[in-house]
């Protein structure tokens, strides 16, 4: 299961106004692996993550992804004036899913927020937004799931659901990359990399 590289980053470099932030980052995420990237505030984690998901272009280096990618941002990036179900519909369209209804029902039940399906996001709790935020990254069953600071955004219930889900995803050969300033449960990860001086060091 561990022989397929789902995500390969080679020698990625990025500087802002002449100040280098990433100085040749290498990372490989294989099928069935869960990696963590940790670092102090300002170490370049967000820059690296933005480059991986496509929100920023690197100055140098190569990037390759095998299969589909799901991205769960730290903040709940969902449409405030749409309902939970309409958000699923909109993102389902973005992923090109024709069965977005069935997929959304499964996720709504799994994360136990089906009762809020027809509520506007502006009327639901922060916890429900976080569940939706995560589910929108999961709804197309991506090969690679990238999570930005999940610990700071998830409530306890979502946190428990999340760990239950990660086991299932890893068993199915998916790859998970968690970017955070702090990592708990080190033994759950295949490897923990620390971003220091613009390069990744494996603990």
């Amino acid at each position: 299961m561990n022989d397929r590289a789902l995500l390969a980053i080679n020698d990625i470099a990025k500087a802002f106004r002449g100040t280098p932030v990433l100085n040749g980052v290498d990372l490989e995420l294989r099928s069935g692996e869960m990696l963590a990237v940790v670092g102090e505030n300002g170490s370049g984690k967000s820059t690296l993550l933005k480059i991986i998901v496509g929100l920023l272009e690197p100055d140098a280096g190569a990037f390759r992804i095998q299969g589909t990618m799901g991205y769960c941002p730290q903040e709940s990036l969902v449409f405030e004036n749409l309902t939970v179900r309409e958000n699923f519909q909109f993102f389902g369209k973005a992923y090109g899913l024709t069965d977005w209804r069935e997929r959304s029902v499964r996720l709504l039940e799994r994360f136990q927020f089906a009762q809020y399906a027809d509520y506007l996001i502006s009327k639901v709790s922060g916890g429900t937004r976080q569940k939706l935020n995560l589910c929108l990254a999961l709804m197309h069953d991506p090969d690679v799931l990238i999570l930005d600071e999940p610990y700071s955004g998830f409530d306890w219930e979502t946190y428990l659901h999340f760990w239950g889900l990660t086991e299932e995803l890893l068993e199915r050969g998916r790859g998970l990359l968690i970017v955070s300033h702090l990592i708990y449960d080190h033994d759950q990860f295949s490897a923990v990399h620390e971003l220091v001086d613009g390069v990744l060091r494996c603990d």
Binding site: L55, Y71, E75, L77, F79, A94, L136, H140
Partner: peptide, 14 residues
């Protein structure tokens, strides 16, 4: 409005 959510939609395939 929702410019960051729209950017997420683009990352997802729009």
């Amino acid at each position: 409005r929702d410019v960051d959510v729209n950017r997420r939609l683009v990352v997802c395939g729009y």
